[in-house]
Design a protein around this nucleic acid. Structure first.
Lengths: 178, 178
DNA sequence: GGTATCTATATCGTTTCGATATATTCTACA
DNA sequence: TGTAGAATATATCGAAACGATATAGATACC
């Protein structure tokens, strides 16, 4: 599932501009996917060229013009085909965890600060997500939202309960001769 | 934190070949990072060129030769510098969840099969991880391993408890006029 | 004997990232 | 009232990473 396909899928929820699609990636898709403008705009241009979406330029009052994209019947078919593909295994990227793997190489204080910051931002993000719980929308979207919440909760709980593992050791052995 | 830095970090655990580093990415790093040969080999070449690692070719009996990499003092310093950087927010990529967001566009049976497969592979992977729980190693490595286990458990539990959301709706409205 | 998996390194086209550029409007603050 | 910062909006480009493929000997299984 590449960015082109994801854009197509988001357009099944309704017409949108590239900027609005980026907002979706930062919002409800945040826990499953990420995409930058550098991939979204080329994707939309490619989809337009391939006849899977149409593009209409819209003038706006007090705002820059926007290009509104709409999925075509051919686009819907292409998306349904893509949905049938067997999904590859999930991937994650966490620099936070990668750093903590080497906690014994860092000053104890630094590790504690890092953990505090992560918990604070995690709790903030969680509160934000709960506020945005979708009441309408498709069941799939609610399922996905709930999954994001559950994963965040689990991450916060684990870090709270196990932070001593990386903190106490850093205190006891600030410079182990590895 | 790029692949070069991660390779450097793994080499602080001991000397390794490119192939062994790939194994690490598939093993204990699996839940925080991923890297293919296409990024590992160029990274090791670049690190060698920059004097952050050294490379020694080793002949082996009944196996292809391997190039064993070792981190240099300059490499250790570069790695410690990189560890100080503030980590960006975590990222995830799940085609499984992306597909389920559009569950109402799919046949009910397909969704159920997809969920069953995911649960089966998740449980298998979890059992595998529990078997490989590290007893030795740095506390950071144990912390990271535990985190991976906790996240997998949470994902499985959520899917088990909420699969009806995407399954029942698919049965009731197999072709909603979106 | 054949087929698949493991060890091991490497390349290459395509995709995606991340930073940057540009321009307008809205908001907040001193 | 000025101005700094955030939001809306599109776009490009070099660098990084992906993913598939090639090569090749060893082992293991049917």
């Amino acid at each position: 599932m590449d960015i082109k396909t994801l854009c197509l899928g988001l357009l099944t929820f309704g017409d949108a501009s590239g900027y609005e699609i980026k907002k979706s990636f930062e919002g409800e898709l945040r826990h499953f996917y990420e995409a930058s403008f550098g991939s979204i705009y080329p994707a939309l241009m490619r989809l337009t060229k391939d006849g899977l979406v149409t593009c209409t330029e819209q003038a706006q009052v007090n705002r820059p013009d926007k290009k509104v994209y709409r999925i075509t019947p051919a686009g819907r078919m292409a998306f349904l085909d893509a949905l049938q593909q067997k999904p590859p295994h999930d991937r994650a990227r966490s620099d936070f965890m990668a750093i903590l793997m080497f906690a014994d190489l860092l000053p104890a204080r630094h590790v504690s600060d890092l953990v505090d910051e992560r918990l604070a931002s995690g709790r903030k993000h969680l509160a934000d997500m709960r506020r945005r719980t979708p009441r309408g929308g498709s069941p799939g979207r609610r399922f996905a939202h709930g999954y994001g919440v559950a994963m965040l909760e689990a991450a916060i709980a684990y870090i709270e309960e196990n932070r001593h593992l990386v903190e106490s050791e850093a205190l006891l052995a600030p410079a182990s001769g590895r």
